[in-house]
Design a protein around this nucleic acid. Structure first.
Length: 564
RNA sequence: UGGGCAGUCGCCAAGCGGUAAGGCAGCAGGUUUUGGUCCUGCCAUACGGGGGUUCGAAUCCUCCCUGCCCAGCCA
């Protein structure tokens, strides 16, 4: 697999400025970045920003990007997640070649370095329990107090640390701490814990270890061991940078990568917290991690978003240090832009009403040619059956049309896409007064949708032949949340108060043109004048299931809404 | 009220002392066998606010305001 190339000139951002400077000054000959997920959940669109950034920089500068699992906390991590993460990164279109790493690969080295720290008097074993450590840490405005165990001898620390490793102590009874400064205004520097006892089985190292290193200690060393040049992370780690640098300054590591922080992605109407996403899954608010309403890559993939669209989105949002909330509209734009070019057009009637052409012979069937994609002639053409009895969209008929209406109404000629001009002569209603059938006539000379006299027919509507059409289930999705920006939540409310009850509407009455009969899971189509749909894997012998990826823009609806 | 970071159009975001890119959204037209696409035009005398330096400031200095992050043996 090739990492996607791009001929677009990348937009300038502060990270590129740093890299340009480092390359120009000779600090680095080439760059090496890394995407370092913790395998404790599924990747979401926010991770996609980071993946595109890290792999994209490597691509643009002819460098390398590693995939490294930050797996230092065995009780939260699982192979299910490492598998899904690899699948998602690959699906997004990136290739880590043979550069697949795990922080757990460095456990031995990390341990050796810890002993060095101890031997140099820069780390000590502390007997304080979690509560006590917290009390000693002080507060934002009050300096911390030294641990009573802070000045143990090197020999005692070494002995204790080895016994921690060997399982002599209970979880929580002891920890290894860096000896830095309990009075630092930066809480991260107040003798942070670097090793804790956890008698848990690790998904890769099994039962080999009973102590596990903490993130701050592990991450910088992992970066250094891999020769990472630019270690890009999110804003909340800004305060950790002095600690990142401190460890690397104390240890005989091969190099000292530069940590650079950028603002994580927030999307309007979207919840991006891993913890809450997990709750949505566990509480069955959604149907799993890959529910098409989820902002996970698995969900977006199932919904029908293409990796190209997501990459384009990542490019367009830019990279900066200001907290922001990107409009969901931008993502939709990128999805539509890609689908417009690549999705074949088909006709599907979502809310069918019968249309009978009284002057069209009973039993006659014509196969009419239709282009598959006006944006792409190479997509070819297909044949669609036409007959006396059709279905059209209920919304495409109005008995008393508003001003500006150019769909069907009594006596008004409209074009059936790819077929004929028809004119409604009669409206048939059922006992409830609901329109049950439209009786029309057609112009035999308008075959294909045009006439020699060149008369203008403004309205064009889609249709299917009643007897040839096939049923399907349509899953129509909308935003999962009604609130745009979660920073604006009302006091006392939480995210569950903003769930959209209509985020999924199931349609089982639609009728599709027969060419869709053999559609395969994952395929994407434009249902003309409606939206883009993808074939859901739930499709089977019992019938087709489609997910609505995104609607088409609808300026008519917008204009009508503006009037009321 | 300790420390760190950030504030440029409704939403993103370039800009790095020489007089406000671009995209999305929006608005107005045009083309159109999708009220889709496409095309054209409009959309910040103004860069959180006040002072200051300078011939010249979004860019430098200064004070202030607002927002975000940090007190896990999570990452």
């Amino acid at each position: 697999m090739e990492n996607p190339t791009t001929d677009k000139t990348p937009v300038s951002n502060f990270i590129r400025t740093i890299i340009d400077r480092d390359l120009e000054s000779g600090k680095h000959k080439s760059i090496k970045t890394r995407f370092p997920p913790e395998p404790n959940g599924y990747l979401h669109i926010g991770h996609a920003k980071s993946i595109c950034l890290n792999f994209g920089l490597a691509r643009d500068y002819g460098g390398i990007c590693h995939l490294r699992f930050d797996d230092t906390n065995p009780i939260k991590e699982d192979v299910e997640y490492v598998d899904s993460i690899m699948e998602d990164v690959r699906w997004l279109g990136f290739d880590w070649q043979d550069k697949l790493f795990y922080a757990s690969d460095y456990f031995d080295q990390l341990y050796e370095y810890a002993e060095i720290l101890i031997k140099e008097g820069k780390a000590y074993v502390c007997d304080l329990c979690q509560e006590e450590i917290r009390k000693h840490r002080g507060t934002l405005t009050v300096p911390g107090k030294d641990s009573p165990y802070r000045n143990r001898s090197v020999e005692e620390n070494l002995d204790l640390f080895r016994r921690m490793r060997d399982g002599e102590f209970e979880e929580g009874a002891k920890s290894l701490r860096a000896k830095i400064d309990m009075a630092s205004p930066n809480l991260n520097m107040r003798d942070p814990v670097i090793y804790r006892i956890k008698k848990a089985e690790h998904h890769r190292t099994g039962n080999k270890w009973l102590i596990y290193p903490m993130y701050d200690y592990t991450h910088c060393i992992s970066d250094a061991l891999e020769g990472i040049t630019h270690s890009i992370c999110t804003l909340e780690f800004e305060d950790h940078r002095p600690l990142y640098d401190w460890f690397l300054d104390q240890l005989p590591v091969p190099c000292h990568p530069q940590q650079i922080e950028f603002a994580r992605l927030n999307l309007s109407h979207t919840m991006m917290s891993k913890r809450r996403l997990l709750e949505l899954v566990q509480n069955k608010v959604v149907n799993g991690w890959d529910d098409p309403r989820m902002p996970t890559l698995a969900g977006m993939r199932r919904r029908g978003f293409s990796p190209e669209a997501i990459r384009e989105f990542a490019d367009r949002i830019g990279v900066a240090k200001a907290n922001s909330v990107v409009d969901f509209e931008l993502l939709q734009f990128c999805v539509r832009e890609d689908l417009n070019k690549h999705a074949n057009r088909v006709m599907a009637v979502l809310d069918p009403v019968k249309l009978t052409i009284e002057n069209y012979p009973e039993g006659k069937v014509e196969e009419l040619e239709a282009d598959n994609n006006p944006e792409d002639p190479s997509a070819g053409v297909r044949l669609i059956p036409f007959s006396r009895n059709l279905y059209i969209e209920r919304d495409d008929f109005s008995e008393n049309p508003p001003k500006g209406w150019f769909r069907m109404s009594p006596g008004k000629e409209v074009r059936l896409k790819h077929a004929y001009y028809v004119t409604c002569k009669e409206v048939v209603r059922d006992a409830q007064g609901r329109i049950s059938e439209l009786i029309c006539t057609y112009d035999p000379l308008s075959r294909g949708g045009g006439t020699a006299d060149g008369r203008k027919v403004r309205g064009t509507i889609h249709w299917v032949s009643a007897e040839h059409s096939i049923p399907a289930e349509l899953r129509l999705y909308d935003q999962l949340f009604t609130i745009a920006d979660f920073n604006d939540m009302e006091e006392g409310k939480d995210y569950t108060d903003y769930l959209n009850p209509d985020s999924l509407v199931v349609n089982r009455v639609c009728r599709l043109e027969p060419s869709l009969r053999d559609a395969k899971a994952g395929e994407r189509y434009q249902f003309m004048r409606q939206g883009y749909f993808s074939v859901d894997p739930d499709s089977g012998p019992d019938g087709l299931v489609f997910n609505r990826i995104v609607t088409l823009k609808d300026s008519w609806a917008k204009q009508q809404a503006a009037k009321s």
